[in-house]
Structures are given as C-alpha cells and as structure tokens.
Nucleic acid binder design. Structure first.
Length: 901
RNA sequence: GGGCCCGUAGCUCAGAUGGUAGAGCGCCGGCUUUGCAAGCCGGAGGUCCCGGGUUCGAGUCCCGGCGGGUCCA
C-alpha cells in the first residue's frame, strides 16, 4: 500500500462506515451516515459543539481519563519530555509527542522506554503564532499532545492500524461518550521529522480531535522508502477534546478556566457576553481567510456581516479580548520554556523565547496597561503547577527574574531606538537605508520599530523586503561549511575499526601496534593510544618509531571508527610493528582541562541554576574555555563560589567513571542533562560520570579521579553573546604556575605599599585617594600663587603701537590653567597678554587678545614660525611653542608685529 | 571567530573643522515658602579607560590593549 491509497480499516467497515469524498475540500472520509455530504471538519462545516457540552470535565480530568484508559489497555504511562528538544540537533522545540522518540527509536536503533506506551507531552509550535487569539482557541502555541505509541520491529509486533483505530474508537465512545455516529474519520498523509505515513483524523462536531498516524516510510534522498520499524504515532489534542466536551464559548475558556477572567480584569478588558463569543467562535470556524494570513480586521468585517452586527462594535468588543487570549497562551508557553531551562538570546531556541516575550510585551503595550509581564507569567506558573506540572513552581523565581530582565531590555531598546530615530529625523527629516542598517546593526533596533517611531513623527520609512539579507551580506557571512568528508572515506570500510586504547586506559602513553593501512598520507594502526580531535579536545601529538624509522605524529583524525595518524616523515610500511609515544605533558594537561570543564559546568549549575547548559567548549594546554547559557552577567561573588565549589570537588577526589549505555537507558537514568556537549549522533552513548556529582555524554579523555585535575582557576567570565557567558580557566600545572606568578606580583605590590597582601587593595585605594587629594591641593596652591602674581602683572602694561601688552611668565600652573586665570582677571580691559611657560627644551606660548580687533591665531602662527616654532589658534586665543633659547627673540618679533601695524 | 559602535563629573549624556572640558539630574551651602512640591543664587566634584604614535598642541586623528554594547557566523 502506498501513500494516498484508501485506508481501509476492517473494524470501521464492519461497524458500517462508508468512504466518501468531501465536495468542499476534496478529501476522503469515513462516516456511518450514508447521506452525509461533507467531511464535517471546519471550515467545510461550522463547529457544532459550542454550547452543547457533553461533560463538565476539566483539562486534568480529561488527561487523566485518557492516560488511565490507555494504561488499562496495556500501555505504560511515561512522563513528559522537556519542551526544549535537547536530544535533537534538527529541532529546537518539542513540537509533537513523537519528537521524543526520533530519530533513533523510530528507526529501530534504540529500544523505546516502553512499548506500547502512553504519554501527554506539552508541545510548542510557533508557526501559527499570529493566529493565536483570533481563532478563539483553535490555534495555540502550547498544547498537550496525548498519545499512545507502538513501535513494531521485526523482532516484536505490538499493534498496527486496526488496533489503533479500535483504541481511539473505544476511547471516544466509552470514555468521552461521543455518540458513534458523530465520529467521522478523514484520510490524510502525515510527514515530519524525516518520516511519513498515511493517517486518519477523527472529526467530531466540526473539530479534529486527534490524528492517528501510521508511520511506515522514511525519507531517503528525497524519496520515501518503507521502514523496518512501523510506528503507531497518535496525537490527541487535549485542549480540543476538553473544549469539545465542555462546549465552552472559546478554547481558552476550556483550557484556562478562571484564568480567563483573571487576565481579562487584570488587563482592564470589558467582559463580552457568552452568546456573542460563542456565535463569533462558530462563525470564525468556517472562514479560511485567517488561515491564509489575511488581515484580522477584514475577517472581522465578514463575521460582522454574517452575524448582522456593526463591525466597529465587534472590533471594539473582540479585538482587546483576542489580545488577552494571545497573552494567556504566550505567558503559558513562556513559563514552560523558561522552566525547562531556556535562556532568551538572539539565536536558536533562545531567540524563540525572546520572540514570544517581546510579542507579549507588545500586546501589553497595545492594550495600554502597565502590568509587568512577569506577573502574568507567575500566574501561569502557579496555575499549572497545581495542574500536573509541579516542576514549574521550582523555577518561579528564575522565571520572574528572566522575564523582568527581558522587559527592562525591551524597554531600553525602545527608549534608545526612539531617541536615535528622533535625532536622525530632526537633523535630516528622513531616514535612509543606511540609517536603518546602522540602527539595527549597532543598536539592535529593528526596522519595524524605526518605522513606527518615524511614523509618529510624520516620516515615512521604506523597509526593503530583503532587509535582513542586506545585513547578512554586509557581514560577509560565510556559509557554514558542511563537514567535509575526506576523499578516502569509502576506502576506510576495507579496514577493521581501530581499537581505542585511550578509552581503556586514558593514562596509557606508550604502546605497540601494527600498521594495517595507508590512507591518503596517513597511517592506520590496528590499535592506538593517540586521541583524535573531537569534543572540543584537540588531537594528540607524539612520535611513532619502528626499526629503521621514526616520525612525528602531527595530528590524529577519526572517521567511521578508524583512527588516522598524520606524520611529518616517511610512512612506516604495511605490517610494520611500531612503537607509539604520546606527548604526555600535553595529553595530561588536556585531560585535566577536560574533566575540569565538567566540574566547572556542574559548579555553575549549582551556583547559578539548572538553566545553565554548556554552549560550547574548547580545551587547550594552558587555558580552556567553557561557554555556558545564563541570562545576565556573572557577579564576582558568584564566580568565586563557582571556583570554590569546583576546587572542593577536586579535593573530594571523586572517581570519574566512563562506560557505554544505550540512549534510552542513559536518558532514563540521568535525564537530558547528558547532552551538554551537543547531540551525539549514535544509538549508544559514552557516559562520563563524576561519581555523585555530574554525568555527561562525552567522548573525551578524562582523569580517573577528580584529584588528578589539580587546582582550577577561572581567570575571567565575560558575556560573549546575549545569554552566553564564557569562562576562561586553567587547570593543573598551568593554573598553579599562573597563580604563583600572580601571587608574587601581588606580594611585590604589597611590599612597595608596605602593607600585608590582604590589605593591598585597601591600601592601594587609599594611596590613590591620597594622590588625588595631593594633586588637587597642589593645583589649588599653584593657582592661588599664580593668580596673585598675574593680578599684579596685569596692573601694568607696555604700550606697543596701539596695543597695551603684558607678559605673564607661568611657573607652576599649566598653560591652559594660566589662560583661564588671565581670561578671568583681565576682565574688560583692552590688553594683549602673552603667556609663556617653559616645558622641557621648549617654551609653550599663548597670546590672548582682549578688546582688540586682532587675529590672535594668525599672530601666533606667524610669530612662532619665524623663530622656528609652530602654533595657531582662533580669533581670541593663539597658542604654540618655540625653542627655549628663542624666547627673547619671540617677544621681540611680537612687539615688532604689533608696533608696525 | 569576524564587522560596526561606545568608554568624558556619582548618574544620563553634550563636546563641526585638533586650540581655555560642558549641560541636566544628584550632592553641599544660602535665599524664597506656614509646610510640601518646587523655584532662585552659589559651590564642590575630571588620570576625558590604558599605552604608544602623528602634531607646536590630542577628549578629538592613527595604531595597540582593556572594558561594554550590537549584529553576523
């Protein structure tokens, strides 16, 4: 059977179901009613469940009913996975329950945690974020996907299509008590995550309440091929089912209960009568416009027509409520994301978190309320922690803090952006592309905001559609190079995988092995102690020697389990016994740094919180770096606590154990915290466990006890990016060396200050303070003395031509200061004041012209030049300098100039 | 890792073209007011991030470093 063929379920046929084609959407469906025309799903037919409740059940009751029903049918209930898909490198968020089990379990490479199993998985999808609110609950960014999954392998068949439909049918009719004749099964095709298969979508009263997917194909080079493992992938919409059962006016009423009213009144929004809301929901369900992204306002006008209401009345009533609905949804999503350890940033899942937070802040702004977003999020936390998610409450403080920080940031950007835009508009009445780029590039102000602000000032700004491309182009962005596979990659299959001695004994530095191949210009051995580059640990170097030859190993690479040694000399012939010697000092240093990385990461988690994840790491011989996620900068005190905890862990001399586990077992035992160094693309994981302290999946070489690390010193912590802090540290010998050096410098300073090392900072500050005071005192003195002197000098003058001139010889104040004094003291008297001040082998000069029409700058330029100096200035003041011995002639030249004119 | 921007008084920031370092807020003192809010007058407060260079002269120009922001990988 191929994709798109009729899906014939005997169970349904026996019950009298017939296959029909919907004249509206053209899709096939199964129904008990032979006279039925359409498929029954909105928008082919409107909702018919609103106001016709079947049972007054809460969301939790519906969830519990489902899970225990599936348990009674032989399924094992398992707990939810995080909403951040840390185990996937192709997804940021958990968007469906099956995401939990891709790719290894669905591919049959790793056994599932239970089989069959049932779960209620909170899922986040941001694709339809614009529709949340206007569709009255049909779209949500966060929802729970209840599911039962069965994984059918060659070895074990669990159940397939018939049983799946039976299970759904029984659940719908017995547990939900939906009359059988109201259930319609629509045929469809489901694709996602590299898998595909036919599906059935049960429709009840206009609403699709589940999707029953029979996953039996996987994508290979753009084509679908049958899988060995066939997976039952069901998804039951908890929120939709609850809505259907209750018949509430909107989905939000069904999901959020009394939070709807809490939010409504908190946001100062008028209550809308239920009848109107219900009618609105029903009518909106048949309109496709929204789905196609048409403007909400246009949609509302059509609904107003259908309901025969004034459209501005409807707009006024509904628009604010939609925003409250969107806020209900977004704040819940934010709460879950942050509880599961998301740190807002400008990349990856961090960006998605920020996106939702900023959207919410914008909604608050549009509603014109002053409420802090964190208050609303906190309400969600307490609401949901009482409804099956107690883990949210533990993260409350952090969640509130992060949301507050993000709000402050957002407001800061708005403020700054507005200021800059105003400045530009004021100075040139328009904004061009260059301005937009600068604003975005250097100030982080998005063009949409610029448009808004400029619009308020009456300036129209064009934002090109390809704006973000332009920015990228400016940054000469290089495409990330696809991991280049060497040309000999297929050749490798001929050889046996290398025996990895460095895993058996990380301290093994010498070994004997046999050359089993030459690949490219590299040597392949049957076993090796050389560690190849990987996991942020650089490759080993060392020496290979054999009878009649010797070569340095300059780098080591590993492909497909074969370790290749690159030599800088002749290659030993095939079959040669070689003796390998790893550069011990470097290797040991890297091992220490590597284990230290794990130690520091855990210390950071314990000090800062469980949202801390490794973002990246680079190990070196002298110094290593560990980048961690954190939402603000680390304080010096926090850093000290991290360092202390790390060093205490070293001193506890904990065993470091390494072993292999299947992914499912490892995840069950340790959780997703394992995936710190990125996603490992293998069914089995190498576990590095610092006993009783930290566990990670890691392929690196590690010391066997933490005591072997030696001292750990974090030199500095700095924000390298939004939401990412880089810790630069040393471990072992380099740490000790640098600490010793730093301490001897400190000792030296303490000695010169004549204080103990403990007081060196205080003494230094005091000395600086004293220095400052003394400087001030000296300057004040000098000024007083000079002032008195200048006052005397200015009383007299020499008449040269039409000018009265005075000569002030400065001794203890700077020329600048002298000029200021003269300027103050000369008052309104007509005078040309020449100031001179010796400075090394030159004399600084200034001429201040007071009350005469004379260009001081020109005068100084010409006169200084004529005696071998230089200078210039403006109308009132000229300044320059001349050689010391030319002072007398300089004064003569000035006299001559003034006298002659 | 790379691009761009910034670093000036306790804080927020001005300081075309290189030429006597400024404003607002805050602080101190005085005046005005029944008091408050405020207003008026005066004052203290500066290693213009650090180091080098160009120049007669650098907060300003150039190079390097440190610190911060922002964008792109």
């Amino acid at each position: 059977m191929g994709l798109g063929d009729p899906i014939e379920i005997q169970f349904l046929i026996e019950r009298g179901y017939v296959r029909k084609k919907c004249p509206k959407c053209g899709e096939y469906f199964w129904t008990l009613d032979p006279d039925r025309e359409t498929c029954g799903e909105s928008p082919c037919e409107p909702y018919s469940f609103i106001g016709r409740g079947i049972a007054d059940k809460s969301l939790e009751e519906v969830r519990e009913d489902f899970l225990s029903f599936m348990e009674s049918k032989g399924h094992t209930r398992i707990g939810r996975y995080p909403v951040i898909a840390r185990w996937r490198d192709d997804l940021f968020l958990t968007s469906a329950s099956i995401v939990d089990f891709q790719p290894f379990i669905t591919a049959g490479l790793v056994p599932p945690p239970a089989n069959p199993l049932t779960i209620s998985q909170p899922c986040i999808r941001l694709k339809d974020v614009d529709k949340v609110g206007p569709t009255m609950g049909r779209h949500l960014t966060i929802f729970e996907m209840m599911a039962h999954h069965a994984f059918n392998t060659k070895e074990r068949f669990v159940y397939w299509k018939e049983r799946t439909v039976e299970l759904f049918h029984e659940y719908a009719t017995e547990v939900l008590r939906i009359p059988e004749e109201e259930i319609i099964y629509k045929e469809g095709i489901w694709e996602g995550g590299g898998n595909a298969g036919p599906d059935l979508e049960p429709i009840v009263r206009g609403l699709e309440i589940a999707t029953l997917v029979f996953m039996e194909y996987r994508e290979e080079n753009g084509k679908y091929v049958p899988m060995d493992t066939k997976v039952v992938d069901t998804g039951y919409g908890l929120e939709r089912i609850t809505w259907l059962l209750r018949g509430d006016p909107t989905g939000f009423h069904a999901v959020y209960g009394d939070l709807v009213d809490t939010f409504r009144s908190e946001l100062g929004i008028e209550r809308v009568e239920e009848r109107l809301l219900s009618r609105y929901s029903e009518v909106s369900s048949i309109l496709r416009e929204l789905e196609r992204g048409r403007k909400v306002e246009a949609l509302r006008r059509r609904i107003a027509e259908i309901l025969m209401l004034d459209s501005s009345y409807l707009e006024e009533k509904i628009a604010p409520l939609e925003k409250a609905f969107a806020l209900l949804d977004h704040t819940k999503t934010i709460a879950f994301m942050l509880a599961d350890g998301l740190v807002p940033s400008n990349v990856n899942e961090g960006y998605l978190g920020r996106l939702l937070i900023r959207r919410s802040l914008k909604l608050l702004k549009l509603l014109g309320v002053e409420t802090n977003l964190s208050e609303l999020v906190a309400r969600q936390v307490s609401y949901w922690s009482g409804k099956g998610f107690p883990e949210l409450k533990e993260a409350l403080d952090r969640i509130v803090e992060i949301v507050d920080i993000e709000q402050a940031r957002y407001e800061e950007i708005l403020r700054r952006g507005e200021k800059i835009v105003r400045g530009i508009v004021k100075s040139k009445r328009k904004l061009d592309l260059e301005d937009l780029i600068t604003l975005y590039d250097s100030h982080g102000v998005p063009p949409e905001l610029v448009q808004t602000v400029a619009g308020k000032l009456g300036v129209n700004v064009e934002v090109p559609d390809n704006f973000y491309e332009l920015i990228a182009g400016r940054h000469e962005s290089r495409k990330p190079e696809a991991p280049k596979l060497p040309p000999f990659i297929d050749e490798l299959d001929r050889y046996k995988p290398t025996k990895l001695l460095y895993y058996q004994d990380p301290y093994l530095m010498e070994f004997d092995a046999t050359v089993i191949g030459h690949v490219g210009d590299m040597v392949l051995l049957d076993e090796t102690a050389f560690y190849p580059e990987g996991g942020g640990q650089p490759s080993d170097v060392g020496v290979l020697s054999w009878s009649g030859g010797r070569a340095e190993v300059v780098s080591v690479e590993k492909y497909k389990g074969r370790v290749l040694h690159r030599l800088n000399g002749p290659l030993p012939p095939l079959g040669t016994r070689v003796h390998g010697k790893v550069d011990e000092e470097r290797r040991l240093s890297r091992m220490r740094h590597h284990t230290a990385t794990h130690v520091i990461l855990e210390a950071a988690r314990r000090v800062l919180g469980p949202h801390v994840w490794q973002w990246g790491a680079q190990k070196g011989d002298e110094e290593s770096r560990l980048d961690i996620t954190h939402y603000k900068s680390i304080t010096p005190e926090e850093l000290e606590r991290i360092e202390l905890l790390a060093n205490e862990t070293v001193m506890r001399n904990l065993p470091v154990n390494t072993f292999w586990l299947l992914r499912t077992d490892a995840e069950r035992r340790y959780g997703f915290i394992l995936y710190q160094g990125g996603v490992v693309p293998d069914p089995a994981l190498r576990i590095v466990e610092i006993q009783g302290y930290n566990v990670q999946a890691c392929g690196g070489t590690h010391v066997t006890r933490t005591g072997d690390i030696g001292p750990i010193k974090v030199w500095r912590a700095r924000r390298i990016q939004d939401g990412v802090i880089r810790l630069e540290f040393s471990a072992g010998v380099p740490a000790a060396r640098r600490l010793i050096k730093a301490h001897s410098k400190l000792k030296e300073i303490a000695q010169s200050l004549g204080v103990s090392e403990e007081e060196v900072d205080k003494a230094f500050k005091a000395a600086m303070e004293e220095l400052k005071d003394l400087r001030r005192e000296i300057r004040r003195h000098a000024r007083e003395i000079e002032e008195a002197k200048i006052r005397e000098i200015l009383k007299e003058f020499e008449k040269v031509g039409d000018y009265r001139i005075s000569h002030v010889e400065l001794a203890s104040v700077s020329l600048d200061e002298g000029v200021k004094l003269v300027d103050k003291l000369v008052g309104s008297e007509e005078r040309v004041v020449i100031l001179t001040k010796p400075s090394g082998d030159r004399v600084e000069v200034a001429v201040l012209v007071n009350g005469y029409d004379l260009m001081a700058g020109d005068l100084v330029r010409e006169t200084t030049k004529s005696v071998g100096g230089g200078g210039g200035g403006d109308q009132r003041l000229g300044r320059g300098s001349i050689p010391k011995e030319k002072l007398e002639s300089f004064l003569e030249v000035i006299r001559a100039r003034l006298g002659g004119s």
